[in-house]
Design a protein around this nucleic acid. Structure first.
Lengths: 207, 207
DNA sequence: CGCGGTTCTGAACATGGGTTCCAGAAAGTT
DNA sequence: AACTTTCTGGAACCCATGTTCAGAACCGCG
């Protein structure tokens, strides 16, 4: 009856680790999508009963948002890598976002991209938050593109933000390819080519 | 009982045009997604009662597949544009796929991209078919990339198919940007930049 | 006009899945 | 050990939505 009671008796403490549960939940959502996972599935994945899930996190929607939000924040932070020089930093950020260890299905940014693709239909808030999380990345792109323009590698009349958007767009699409069965190695190769083509090495002269 | 009867009595004729209905259905799916549209919605959108829809097209899934398949075939055909020269042709195809008239929400390939994004989770067949429909486009990309490699604009060790995939990926991502509120004009500018960057004008020397 | 045949329609049905609820177990505190 | 509080699990509830069905409407023909 008292949510934060401080009376004499303390009551039973939690048996599960909240963080572990959230990880399991994210993994499940990541695997089968929002609509594709029932609360039953989540119960199985976490080892908690439905009742416990509801008691601890509220309904399915709230649970998803919790996981989603946490993931976004995580992404925001992981995007803030320290390397010397703004360009190097930006490039590094880009790589960190786009590439993934071979065979690893939980590539960075994946959950974000996938859920956004699925839920942008019905939930503008999620779409917006997801995009916001990409903003750091976008900013990196802008920086790189500007630099490339100064160096003369890209048409100077092009809009840096727009080109940054292209990279973002590419990332979204990469997930689709992954889903379609393209292996991680190939994906990374594509990614590298993309980074190269936008960001800026002078093209080789010939074969 | 007899689907194609040729007996004396002809029975009550259809009151609707099948094609018009399918267009309305596609529009609705395109607007609110598969999960986001109820059969009730479809009924409202088409002006037909639920029963009629079921009688004419089968269940919701079948109806979607019908629309989807038709759209894919349409896309396959529209990808076969005639221009002189294979490179010109490929480039034209690419533009036809990626760009859209300003402010037009029903841009080419849109329905395909969106539904794939939503349903690839749960239906591999749809994901595969969608990708197959993109194949002509992919082939065009491959062609362009090979040409670019011969001309020395792209690293010759890169895999042309992979780079083609990049363009496909980009297209998928563009839809996301559109959804996120980026206006069509900007999108087209991004697209042009993408086409330019892959396809191959030698970069300008400086500003 | 009646009759076979087909289509149209809205109400009724079925079901999957999110949510609630309660009885009992478990863990602190005194 | 008793008491208090919280956790737990699963049965029960509720509702949205896909699907079916019985009857009305409509057509051409004899």
């Amino acid at each position: 009856m008292f949510r934060t009671a401080y009376r004499g008796a303390m009551g039973r403490p939690r048996k599960f680790d909240e963080h572990d549960v959230l990880v399991a939940v994210r993994r499940q959502f990541n695997e089968t999508g929002y609509h594709g996972t029932s609360v039953e599935d989540l119960s199985r994945a976490t080892g908690l009963s439905k009742g416990s899930l509801y008691g601890a996190f509220g309904d399915k929607d709230a649970l998803f948002r919790r996981v989603f939000e946490e993931y976004c924040e995580n992404s925001d932070q992981s995007a803030a890598v320290r390397v010397e020089g703004p360009e190097e930093q930006a490039l590094d950020r880009l790589r960190a976002w786009l590439t993934a260890p071979e065979g690893c299905p939980d590539r960075r940014g994946c959950f974000l991209a996938k859920t956004t693709a699925e839920l942008a239909w019905e939930d503008d808030a999620i779409a917006a938050r997801s995009l916001a999380a990409y903003e750091t990345l976008l900013e990196s792109c802008r920086l790189l593109v500007e630099q490339a323009q100064r160096a003369g590698h890209i048409d100077p009349t092009a809009d840096p933000t727009a080109l940054g958007g292209l990279v973002l767009a590419t990332h979204r699409g990469l997930e689709a390819l992954l889903k379609a069965g393209v292996d991680t190695k190939t994906l990374n190769r594509i990614t590298d080519a993309a980074i190269d083509s936008i960001a800026l090495q002078p093209k080789r002269a010939s074969a």
